[in-house]
Simulated assay, not measured.
Amino acid sequence: MPELPEVETVRRGLAPHLESARLSEVRLHRANLRYPFPERFAQRLEGAGVLRLERRAKYLLAWLDTQDVWVTHLGMTGRFQINDSPDDLARYYHAVSPDEKHLHFQCLATKGEAVARIDFYDPRRFGFMLLLTPDALYDSKWFRGLGVEPLSGDLSADYLLGMAKGRNVNLKALLMAQGDAKGGGIAGLGNIYVCEALYRARLSPDHKASALTQAQAVALVDGIKSVLEEAVAAGGSSISDFAATSGELGYFQHRFCVYDRKGEPCLRKDGGIIERKVHQGRSSFFCPVCQL
């Protein structure tokens, strides 16, 4: 499933084409993805202007001048593709697609004299799109209680220590929790980057959250931010079906230190061999020598 760096990569690819653009020729090629498309979805997007495109956790939020917010979650295999050549636009009007079976949403985005075709593909159809009012957005089940953004200044060592205080869970579980009813937690962290951040901080995924020290919290926050920043700069990790809006593949998977490296030697050359363990149904990869 695309994680925060992959979703941020998609946002950055879409933003130059969508922000300040006017939507038109909206087409739905099926009635539903994971959920049914919102009622009158195409009609409500038709003619709308996109004020800005944001990311919250693993969601894309397009704020419209119609007082609606167009929300997209990529699910496991969802991807946007931007097409802006004359041939691409001509094919749009003739409904031709090289992957028509998995093409579920299309629209045109017009910005001045520039026109781009925005396609959304999702082979497994675990992604979804919503259309919510700003008032309803953060009270919805998808956004209510989401924690802080890990790349923002809100994530600090003190915040992490507050999260961990008195918690009888391991660090892997603590970091994977997206938030709670009070909004405590870290939004958007996924399995790959939690594994990599814990490695950078030299902390075991089994380390008790309540035993986290100030120095360890500082190291872990640094590990979270650095791995996410580097992954975004690399265009994310192209595993499974993920690709950027241009169709290009990210390359951060070539920099994994522990994820999916079971049985390989630790890159710190400390004699450790990367192990795999299952936490809450998800694979954790770690070095038993340097991660304590």
Score class of each variant (00 low, 15 high):
Met1Arg: 05
Met1Asn: 06
Glu3Pro: 13
Val7Phe: 03
Val10Tyr: 01
Gly13Glu: 10
Arg22Asn: 05
Ser24Gly: 02
Leu28Ser: 08
Leu33Tyr: 11
Arg34Ala: 08
Phe37Cys: 09
Pro38Met: 08
Ala48Asp: 06
Arg52His: 09
Arg55Tyr: 02
Thr77Tyr: 02
Arg79Gly: 07
Asp84Gln: 12
Asp88Gln: 10
Ala90Lys: 14
Tyr93Pro: 00
Val96Ile: 12
Asp99Asn: 13
His102Asn: 13
Phe105Gly: 09
Cys107Asn: 11
Thr110Asn: 05
Lys111Tyr: 04
Val115His: 00
Val115Cys: 12
Arg117Glu: 11
Arg117Asn: 06
Gly127Trp: 13
Asp135Arg: 11
Ala136Gln: 12
Ala136Leu: 13
Ala136Lys: 11
Leu137Ala: 06
Gly147Gln: 05
Pro150His: 07
Leu151Pro: 15
Gly153Ser: 15
Gly153Pro: 00
Ser156Gly: 02
Ala157Val: 03
Met163Asp: 04
Arg167Gln: 14
Asn168Trp: 04
Leu171Tyr: 06
Lys172Tyr: 14
Ala173Lys: 14
Leu175Val: 05
Met176Thr: 12
Ala177Lys: 14
Gly183Asn: 12
Gly183Lys: 11
Gly183Ser: 07
Ile186Lys: 04
Asn191Ser: 02
Asn191Ala: 01
Tyr193Thr: 13
Cys195Ala: 09
Arg202Lys: 09
Pro205Cys: 09
Asp206Ser: 14
Asp206Tyr: 07
Lys208Tyr: 14
Ala211Asp: 15
Val218Met: 11
Ile224Arg: 03
Val227Met: 02
Ser237Val: 13
Phe242Lys: 08
Ser246Asn: 11
Leu249Gln: 13
Gly250Ile: 00
Gly250Asp: 12
Tyr251Glu: 12
Val258Phe: 10
Asp260Arg: 15
Cys266Pro: 10
Lys269Asn: 14
Gly272Ile: 14
Ile274Phe: 08
Val278Asn: 13
Gly281Ser: 05
Ser284Glu: 02
Ser284Pro: 10
Cys290Arg: 13
Cys290Val: 07
Gln291Thr: 01
Gln291Tyr: 03
